[in-house]
């Protein structure tokens, strides 16, 4: 589904590359985790495959087409969905409004279907009353579950998550991990997450470590 061809990235000076010659392939229906030391470039790599920035060298292909040809805006809209450590929900909206807004922007086939959204939220343990509450009044675990449901409701085939369990307690971490596995295995999407938690990484189908500018399968 997603392939990186000799991808490299650096800030300013090409002598100080963050990583180089990255040749990876990510398949649909699988959950990948990327681990590595802080500052090694995990999040930067994730932002490249999420279409938030362009690689300094090399190319990224999605379903055989280069991202530059798809167009980053179009790619972000139709092909990829993101989950952030700090949830990144619209604080002035309710859970249901957050999801409906994302579905509307991405042009999801279920856009505007409130019933479908409520069902999805119910599956992750968020009842209707909580779904209609402003997200800033929900707990961190609930907010992250809303963020994950947002990616589930959008039709993107690739889900990238940056430290999705970073701010959560053990129970919520398990819930979130289980949801991500569900997205990969049941919805047959490709899920790539960046984490520094080994337990989370081990629960994934594949673990890739970024070490000394190189990505290696563990």
């Amino acid at each position: 589904m997603l392939k990186t061809n000799r991808v490299g990235y650096w800030y300013g000076d090409a002598e100080n590359k963050l990583f180089e010659n990255v040749n990876l392939e990510f398949l649909k229906g699988r959950l990948y985790s990327i681990i590595g030391k802080s500052g090694s470039g995990k999040t930067t790599f994730l932002s490249l495959i999420a279409g938030l920035a362009r690689p300094s060298e090399g190319s990224i292909e999605f379903n055989g087409r280069e991202l530059s040809k798809i167009g980053l805006l179009n790619y972000r809209k139709k092909c990829v969905s993101m989950v952030f450590q700090s949830y990144n929900l619209f604080s002035y909206m309710s859970a249901i409004e957050n999801i409906l807004t994302a579905m509307s922007i991405t042009g999801s086939k279920n856009a505007g279907n409130k019933k479908y959204v409520l069902e999805m939220l119910d599956q992750v343990g968020i009842d209707e009353a909580s779904a209609k509450r402003r997200v800033s009044r929900l707990s961190g675990g609930q907010q992250q579950r809303v963020a994950i449901v947002r990616t589930m409701c959008c039709d993107a085939q690739l889900v990238v998550a940056d430290e999705p369990t970073g701010n959560l307690d053990e129970t919520s971490t398990k819930d979130v991990l289980s949801l991500l596995q569900k997205i990969a295995h049941e919805q047959q999407k490709c899920v790539i997450l960046v984490t520094h938690e080994l337990d989370v990484a081990k629960a994934c189908d594949s673990v890739i470590e970024l070490h000394q500018k190189k990505f290696e399968y563990v």
Binding site: A50, L52, L73, N74, Y75, R76, K77, K78, M82, F84, S86, N88, L89, F90, S91, A102, I105, T106
Partner: peptide
């Protein structure tokens, strides 16, 4: 700006 970032990451023009 975070809200803007999220909107752009969702593919908003």
């Amino acid at each position: 700006r975070y809200e803007i970032g999220v909107l752009l990451s969702l593919g908003e023009k």
